[in-house]
Nucleic acid binder design. Structure first.
Lengths: 343, 343
DNA sequence: TCCTCGGCTTGGATCGATCAAGAGGGGGAG
DNA sequence: CTCCCCCTCTTGATCGATCCAAGCCGAGGA
């Protein structure tokens, strides 16, 4: 704190601390990085000097010498307007906290949607980050292959769907288990005609979530034919799909691949004056703010994003340790946030 | 790209480029930072070498020498669960893009709510960031005073409400103008008994937004007494407040300080079987995803967060230039996203 | 008393870029 | 023809922390 008095423009350096403590620079460095090498009384003296001067190692100098930046790159993917998919917020918060505890900071960067590798390249070449957390793996994962080839350490939030042989570390949430949970919840409530509204077939995640619904239905020998719809992830699509299903298949409940689609279902029900929760039940996916605050509340599958962040950081620590420890993939289980949309 | 072939562990340095181009290190440095100093043909030769080797300046080395990190610190404040206030998402995205264009990266850090200054100190002392963007200014602004005293460059998103003499740069959105816009919109629709549900009196922002409502009402000689309520920013509070107001003041419209409160109003209306939009109009604030996807849609005041981010970066560039240019505060105008909740 | 050994400390070199000054060459003015 | 200047490029030093190998010191054994 002391240096805030004197100009505050040049923070104290290691040499300043050394002089004050009456030791050499290397001793101060050891006090910071390998305290066990010092005699206890010397250590105390140095630590006092550090505290008095308010010393903190210059990151640039340390990074230059150690060839590490203690930064983790994260491409920030904003939620689309008009959808209910703002998961980034919750996820990033825990990520920042957890990585901070491990001595890492999160560096955000933007990337165009056209060039999935854009942004990664620059940061890597300028040694601005030690590793990446890759999150946008919904449609295959070109970044993973690219980063692997580049020998850049990274951990993915999302399984390598399109490449079972990928060996990189990943953390994911078992979407199928989530929709199975949701479907069983509805089955337990007495519903038998439960419809599915999901994403188009080329979405790995969408198909995974869908499989949880079919698994639960088939486990009770209930049919799924004619009860499923695959559309784009928009309110309008969900609404249309629900309307068609209500006419043709007369389901008493809907399980959806996203809260956005579930909101579309609520629209459709509202159009017909159907009371959701009482007449027809609806379950969404992601436990977004929308699910939480919509009147009555929307039952939704909740991803343990906090836990995902913790596991990601744990995996990164392994990767960045010497020697690197590459753990296997981690699959976490979601929970179900039950609200009035399922009675 | 070339170095991806050979081990990919030690990126090329400035010296490598210099050797390849047959010039000195300094010339390469100039080619990168002051191209106008080079003779055109030399410049081309160096640029070719840079491209061939896939060279990118080592950030740590550059940061050490120039005493600048080209990083901007941002404390990440997540939206509270159960509210509709996820503005960070939209804001951060533009911020990342805009600052990237100016050569700055966004470094996230966490901070406990108890210690508003926590996190800032470390980053500053270790020269990990050049400046900060301070966003959590809702209740006074201890960070601003602290950073000013510390002579740390920063720009605030939010006016220095509690300290009119503060001289730091800031960007803010004219909340009063927003609620005035909302109120006038309702007045134009023929409403005269328009209620206000806002935050408790110690919130500067809450009082500012409230003043827009009173201004619009008084401009048409309409009374405001008995039509206002000040509560906490939760769904439940909004719902209660609306219930009381409906009983006692019989308003035909509500203007709210947040989408969260507005959702509370929708709950209250739903409780009584009142159709929002037709019988009673509601306006929220922030144009959250919730406002966008709730059935019918919630009319809401939309903050120009993208523009805010651009202005913040512009202000930062001024601050970090030599000599620093401290611009005055910037006040931006919100717009109104009209949806069915106002008919 | 001398020597050795282990633990702690020391100065010097290093990471890769930029700053500050200086060297070389060509062109215009006298 | 000479001088000077300017434009272009080069050389040496520097930012601050860490790695390296050598140096110092006191304790213990012969």
């Amino acid at each position: 704190m002391a240096w805030s008095g004197r100009l505050a423009l040049t923070p104290p350096t290691l040499a300043d601390v050394a002089e004050r403590a009456g030791v050499s620079r290397q001793t101060v460095s050891n006090a910071v990085n390998n305290p066990e090498l010092l005699r206890p009384d010397t250590l105390v003296r140095v630590q006092d000097a550090i505290a008095e001067l308010g010393y903190s190692p210059n990151r640039a100098a340390r990074n230059l010498r150690t060839r590490a930046s203690h930064m983790i790159g994260l491409k920030f993917n904003p939620a689309q307007e008009g959808t209910a998919n703002a998961t980034m917020d919750r996820f990033v918060h825990t990520l920042v906290e957890t990585s901070g505890d491990s001595g890492y900071h999160i560096l955000l960067f933007a990337g165009s949607t056209e060039d999935p590798v854009g942004g990664y390249d620059d940061l890597l070449r300028s040694t601005a980050v030690d590793a990446f957390i890759v999150t946008d793996t919904y449609l295959g994962n070109p970044q993973a292959a690219w980063l692997t080839q580049r020998r850049a350490p990274f951990v993915a939030f999302g399984r390598p769907w399109d490449n079972p042989e990928a060996t990189h570390a990943w953390v994911d949430v078992d979407g199928a288990a989530g929709t199975e949970l949701a479907t069983n919840h509805l089955l337990d409530k007495g519903h038998t005609r439960i419809a599915w509204i999901g994403w188009r077939k080329d979405s790995f995640i969408g198909e995974d979530r869908r499989s949880g619904w079919t698994r639960a239905m088939h486990a009770r020998d209930l049919p799924t034919t004619g009860l499923a719809s695959r559309v784009e992830d928009t309110i309008a699509s969900g609404r249309e799909a629900a309307t068609v299903l209500l006419d043709e298949a007369r389901p008493t409940a809907f399980v959806c691949a996203s809260d956005t689609l579930a909101m579309g279902v609520l629209h459709a029900l509202g159009d017909r004056g159907i009371h959701w929760g009482q007449d027809v039940a609806v379950v969404g996916f992601d436990d977004s703010q929308v699910a939480q605050v919509v009147p009555g509340g929307l039952t939704s599958v909740r991803q343990p994003l906090e836990q995902v962040a913790v596991e990601l950081v744990k995996a990164l620590e392994g990767l960045l340790s010497t020697p690197p420890i590459a753990g296997p993939g981690v699959l976490l289980s979601p929970t179900l946030a039950v609200r009035l949309s399922t009675g």
